[in-house]
């Protein structure tokens, strides 16, 4: 149903643009020009971004990283948590079940919260898009500010919740 509606919108939109060009209808023509202009602006970086993402996915396997986060995770645990966060593909909703399984495998709360933070902040595909469109400087500033703060707050929150014997629940 949703697909049919989207298809109809596409057909309607593009026939409107094409007819506008034939009839020299100025509003339709400028909508069409806008479409092409922004399509070019936004799409020109897509091939490179997607190839980079593909390479990352092939060379860095999530499972390999996950191994390092089992029962014993010292301060290196933060490093692995961030790396795992970066290789988590998909939104927060994908990260939460992984966080739950990390917790069940015995990872410390501070590590689990660092992972959740990193999964929202350091995802590689997103970072590739960010650096492509906003510049590397923008990305570096964001990483440099957010990662230390995420670790700091995760440690504080982890300590506080451990005292209260807090548990992460699975999906009900």
């Amino acid at each position: 149903m949703k697909k049919i509606i989207i298809f109809l919108i596409f057909v309607l939109y593009f026939s409107f643009i094409i007819i506008s060009f034939f009839l020299n209808f100025s509003i339709g023509k400028s909508i069409g020009t806008n479409f092409l202009k922004y399509a070019y602006d936004m799409l020109k970086l897509f091939p490179f971004a997607f190839i980079l993402i593909g390479l990352f996915e092939v060379w860095i396997k999530k499972e390999t990283v996950e191994k390092h986060l089992g029962e014993r995770s010292g301060s290196m645990g933060f490093f692995w948590a961030i790396l795992l966060g970066g290789t988590t593909f998909g939104p927060l909703l994908v990260a939460l079940p992984i966080a739950y399984s990390l917790f069940k495998k015995g990872a410390k709360l501070s590590i689990v919260f660092t992972y959740i933070g990193a999964a929202s902040v350091c995802r590689i595909p997103m970072t590739v898009f960010e650096a492509s469109y906003m510049g590397v400087k923008f990305t570096i500033i964001r990483y440099a500010v957010s990662i230390p703060l995420i670790i700091l707050f995760s440690v504080i929150l982890g300590r506080y919740l451990s005292k209260k014997n807090y548990q992460i629940k699975g999906e009900k």
């Binding site: 919108i9 936004m42 993402i53 092939v58």
Partner: peptide, 25 residues
């Protein structure tokens, strides 16, 4: 394989992307 993944991911987002371009235009 990486190139295939890249192409597949691109195809997956083409429709929402065109939809967004329509709105933006």
């Amino acid at each position: 394989t990486a190139l295939k993944i890249a192409l597949k991911k691109f195809i997956n987002i083409v429709i929402p992307f065109i939809f967004m371009l329509i709105l933006i235009s």
